[in-house]
Amino acid sequence: MHAFCNVQTLLTNGIVLLSEEASDNDESLTAIERREYAIFRELLRMVPGLETRLMTSSEEDVMLIGELIQKGVNGARADDTKGMKSAIIDWITPKGQSLNPHIPRNVKSGRGFNHERTGALLCPAGLDWANTETRMKLVNGQIQVAGDQWPIFLYANYTYDAEDPWNGLLRSGLLVSAYKHIFTSPSSVDQEPKATRSGNARIHGMRAVTKASIAYVATQARFSLTSAQVFSRTDLVTDSERFYSTIVELLDDLEEKDEVDQLLTWWNRQIFPLYSDLERLPTKDSALARIRQKRAEYREMSA
């Protein structure tokens, strides 16, 4: 639901609003407060018994609960960061070829704009990595890349269309591999999704791709490609929190709903083979269709 929220603050503020019977759409709340309260309510839905526990606990116990949840969040994120640091080298290496120079799977110093391959993937959409002057400015830091300057690897086939910036956005094969690695299993990356498979997401009750999970995977993949050593939300060099937040803001923008709905449908088909965005009508002349037809006729006769 959100990768960078402060759990303790979320719980403290959420309990107050819950006791006041506020709603996610309460006009007295700011946009940020509404968003945080929606995250809090989703957390209550995800964890059975948490609402009762929070509302009957002392302030000290609430702090302890927050610390435990935050510890779990931080640990899970660290595991994802560690696992992807190694795996992403396989995904960016062309099949049957090798990277030149070689990038060690567990060393980050040679990544980022220091390497031709990772530099090309991290190059902000709209800039030309093939341009020698641009490349040198990225390498030596003359061009500082802010979090809202999204890299080309977010796009399908690593191609950016300035006239249609939605075209291919957040649909790259690299992102799909990263998503499967975290939310299904590392072994599922090179396999077709199977309807019988129960990945990590399904085991934990996740039945569809969320906007926040796409932004989270993009943030983890971006960090793995950089030369930064330690993942930090406040690191001004990688600017990870701003990067994550700007993607979430776009996906939550109601004016972009049509494009976002299409994007989510595309993602669900990549990750969840049983997902259907359409209400399936029973096959014509099937027994089910006939039963429903008879039921409708019976209702008309009884009316």
Rank of each mutant, 00 (worst) to 15 (best):
residue 3 A to N: 05
residue 9 T to N: 02
residue 13 N to K: 13
residue 16 V to A: 12
residue 24 D to R: 08
residue 24 D to H: 01
residue 25 N to L: 08
residue 28 S to D: 14
residue 30 T to V: 08
residue 31 A to G: 04
residue 33 E to P: 03
residue 34 R to M: 04
residue 40 F to D: 03
residue 58 S to M: 09
residue 59 E to G: 02
residue 60 E to D: 12
residue 62 V to A: 13
residue 66 G to L: 11
residue 69 I to M: 03
residue 72 G to Q: 06
residue 73 V to L: 07
residue 86 S to M: 07
residue 88 I to N: 01
residue 93 T to K: 09
residue 95 K to Y: 07
residue 99 L to I: 00
residue 103 I to D: 12
residue 113 F to R: 10
residue 117 R to I: 15
residue 126 G to T: 12
residue 131 N to S: 06
residue 134 T to C: 11
residue 135 R to F: 09
residue 142 Q to W: 04
residue 146 A to P: 02
residue 152 I to N: 10
residue 156 A to M: 05
residue 164 D to T: 11
residue 168 G to E: 07
residue 169 L to H: 11
residue 170 L to P: 04
residue 171 R to H: 03
residue 172 S to L: 00
residue 174 L to C: 01
residue 177 S to L: 04
residue 186 P to N: 01
residue 186 P to R: 00
residue 186 P to D: 00
residue 192 E to S: 05
residue 193 P to A: 04
residue 194 K to W: 02
residue 195 A to N: 02
residue 199 G to I: 09
residue 200 N to D: 07
residue 201 A to C: 00
residue 204 H to V: 09
residue 223 F to V: 04
residue 225 L to C: 07
residue 229 Q to H: 13
residue 233 R to T: 10
residue 238 T to E: 15
residue 239 D to T: 11
residue 243 F to M: 09
residue 247 I to G: 00
residue 250 L to V: 14
residue 251 L to I: 06
residue 252 D to P: 02
residue 255 E to T: 13
residue 265 T to H: 06
residue 270 Q to M: 11
residue 276 S to H: 07
residue 277 D to T: 03
residue 290 R to Q: 15
residue 290 R to M: 14
residue 294 K to Y: 06
residue 295 R to W: 00
residue 297 E to C: 08
residue 300 E to G: 01
residue 300 E to A: 09
residue 303 A to I: 02
